[in-house]
Nucleic acid binder design. Structure first.
Lengths: 207, 207
DNA sequence: GCAATTAACGAACGTTCGTACTACATTGCG
DNA sequence: CGCAATGTAGTACGAACGTTCGTTAATTGC
């Protein structure tokens, strides 16, 4: 890897961490440079503009999310195991302070940019659509596996699942309530239970 | 009402609207003054500091929320009617662009200040605690009325209900999906259904 | 209707913002 | 080794930031 690319990655990792605390808009080139013991101009040279820095920072966060939340889940067996793993990875992602000391950057940016058109918002929407699609697909597979009732609406369940995650994020971050994780877990189980296929249909699916 | 107080209210209403779009941190005194055809210094004189302006702006938004969401619900009959009314007022609040063209200010600020200690964050937490308490109380009353099962955990249900609202806000604002309201309504009904008291206990409660 | 209070203004403060341009240092390749 | 490309630093810019000041204009209470 070239030197430039290497430091750019270093910058972006720090940018993700900083932006998770102060937001993508609050992320300033000067303060970011200060954290990295770099000059403002030296850092700026890696990105043509602030918006470019913001976009790349968000993309880096999305990469991390994929690595830590989605990809591991795809290695699990289809159906409920995968769905449960995705969910628990997601909660761990919310709680983890390693890469994102200030909470999930995507969730923060979603609120910050819901009224600011531009490249950041577009990327945010695209990422959200992709994620929702992946969850809905996982649910559909769980139906195919006979784990969930066939009449389950994948998009509705995705919506409600997302709500549980949002509530957990909120309670963890703002209220600092560690019980939020437990609450979220209970909510997920109740959600699954409500849509779980009857034994009969499980048997039917297995024959 | 004194002249000063009058214009201060005018300023705060505009501040709520502006902050709902750009956030409480993004709210700048200069741009706010520009919107109101006032001088920066003239506006600033009403508030000792920017933080004071932010706190008062948030308080005004909380007032509006109480007026438009909580108070009307308290006029409804205890139990499910009140709970449903609270929820639908809340969704209307999220959707309404009259006072808050950029979505719920409290939700936006919750994400913005979850890592920024200070008076704004403290006020935010206090308001959230109050709201959660009010919802949990409404749920408890619904249990007392025999509408919901006695073993229902009010705080857990409050958590899940809040999640549905958060998901609706997200889908409305970021994705611009009007079906979010429908989704939220369905989710609420499913939540209620899951905790609804059996007919037997309803009859028992009525005797 | 006069005097005292209050509201609003315009200018300027020092700081930080994003960005541009120039010059020096380092790196990688022939 | 030497030269070209690349990375970093320095400096400067115009604009916007929150804030302070002194002054004028408007409103209030007697």
């Amino acid at each position: 890897m070239r030197k430039g690319e290497q430091t750019r990655t270093l910058i972006l990792n720090e940018a993700v961490a900083l932006a998770s605390q102060v937001g993508l808009e609050g992320l300033s080139i000067g303060s970011l440079a200060g954290r990295l013991d770099m000059s403002k101009s030296g850092l700026f040279a890696h990105f043509g503009s602030k918006e470019d820095l913001q976009v790349r920072t968000l993309r880096r966060a999305q990469e991390l999310f994929l690595e830590q939340v989605v990809s591991p889940a795809l290695k699990q067996a289809q159906g409920l195991p995968r769905l449960r793993n995705l969910f628990s990875n997601w909660l761990a992602w919310l709680e983890s302070n390693d890469d994102l000391p200030g909470g999930c950057l995507m969730l923060a940016a979603s609120v910050e940019y819901d009224d600011r058109p531009g490249a950041v918002r577009d990327l945010l929407v695209a990422g959200q659509r992709e994620l929702r699609g992946a969850i809905a697909k996982a649910i559909r597979l769980a139906i195919d596996e006979g784990h969930l009732e066939p009449q389950t609406d994948p998009w509705q369940l995705t919506f409600e699942l997302f709500g549980v995650v949002l509530a957990a994020h909120h309670d963890l971050r703002l209220l600092g309530d560690p019980r939020a994780l437990e609450r979220a877990g209970d909510a997920l189980e109740r959600l699954i239970e409500a849509h779980r296929a009857a034994e009969l249909s499980v048997l039917r699916a297995r024959t």
